[in-house]
Amino acid sequence: MSLYIGREASKLWKRFWAEVTTEINLLIENWKYLLAGLICQYIHGLAARGVHYFHRPGPTLQDVGFFLLPELGQEKAYISETVFNFVFISFFLWTFHPFLLKSKRIYTVLLWCRVLACLVACQILRIVTFYSTQLPGPNYHCREGSKLATLPRPDNAVEVLLIAPRGILYGCGDLIFSSHMIFSLVFVRTYQKYGMQRFIKQCAWLIVVIQSLLIIASRKHYTVDIVVAWYTVNLLVSFIDYKLPELPDRTGGPALLLPLTKESRTKEENHKLLNGNSGDPVDRRLRTPVSSKILENGNTLHVDTMMNGV
């Protein structure tokens, strides 16, 4: 029993380091895209803080969601944040599953390049939208009488450029459309396309719907902020998916980006000697297995299978 556990642990360790090597190579090639995406996240945070300086509290606007959904109250506002954090953390951990699991469809670095591209496109449109018109915030700390509803004029540039967690939690003015919904919808759509568990996909969409209702019930956003996020994010992600090259699928065969281990290389060389093949084993692995025909340079070549070995 201990021998079996040790053997499986050794396989897991080799798989982990093979994946690390592959992802490092991909990171070297794509680090500029990841860095640009992270910088845009910071710019989005600055923009959300900047609009808080322009926010002026006023009467809460009439909203159909406020009439239909019971108000949770300020003491229960954490519920929607808890649901969002669950979605965020679950997706983040899932993107690293290729390091441990044998069944995989994605490369982590390439997937995050795609996710960040979707987030940046949505956030740019969001910045333009909430700077165009500032609405009185419906959240409790954004209402008239709250000291947090307006920000005093900054004394220096550091105060503007420094984004504190308190400023993120107690922001006002960045309403149309919801940033929480941007992240949740991008994550769920990504798992819908690249995930492999149908039940989890169904649960993920249900959770996002529940999160939408909780955000309105917590009075963190107007209903229009949620509705606009639903169709805007989905349309933008669909457009970006159409424009960007598709990620390599790892379920159809061996991962070509993964380095060959010593054991697998030895098996390839033995197979070549036994069958009299002179081609390189990597080149042979790149070919599509032949059953009845081969597609080469756009032309169809029929191959007759001979039973006599000639």
Rank of each mutant, 00 (worst) to 15 (best):
H141L: 03
L162W: 15
N30I: 07
N234G: 05
L12N: 01
E75C: 06
N277E: 15
N275V: 04
S212H: 06
S132N: 13
F16Q: 08
A117D: 01
G73P: 02
M307N: 11
I39W: 04
T251D: 15
S291E: 13
Y242T: 06
L213K: 03
Q41M: 04
S292E: 15
G309I: 09
F91K: 02
W205M: 03
K272E: 10
L35W: 06
C40H: 01
L257M: 07
R126G: 01
Y140R: 10
M307R: 09
F84N: 00
L101D: 12
L68G: 02
E263N: 09
H180P: 01
E263Q: 13
G276I: 05
H55V: 06
S238G: 11
G171Q: 01
Q211L: 15
Q202V: 14
F130Y: 13
Y140F: 11
N30F: 06
P281A: 14
L162T: 15
S103P: 02
P165W: 08
M181Y: 05
L206G: 14
R166D: 06
R105K: 04
H141N: 10
D280Q: 10
R265V: 05
I39A: 08
Y4K: 12
L295H: 04
S218F: 00
M1P: 08
P289E: 04
G45A: 07
R114P: 02
T133C: 07
Q74K: 14
D155N: 07
N25L: 03
A255K: 00
T288M: 14
C40F: 04
F88P: 00
T251E: 14
N234Y: 09
I200N: 02
L110M: 15
L100S: 09
E144A: 11
L258C: 07
V224D: 08
S238Q: 10
S10N: 15
T129L: 11
F187D: 00
A121T: 12
L27A: 11
N270K: 15
S178F: 03
R285S: 14
E8R: 12
I43M: 07
I106R: 06
G137Y: 04
A18C: 09
T300S: 13
E159N: 04
G37R: 01
R15D: 02
L273A: 14
P154S: 06
Y170H: 08
E75H: 12
Y170A: 01
Q202G: 06
M181G: 02
R143K: 07
P98V: 07
P152L: 09
L119K: 00
W230A: 01
F199A: 14
F67I: 09
A149H: 03
T60Y: 05
E23K: 03
P248M: 12
L125R: 13
L46D: 00
L111P: 05
T82A: 05
I182F: 05
Q192M: 11
E296C: 15
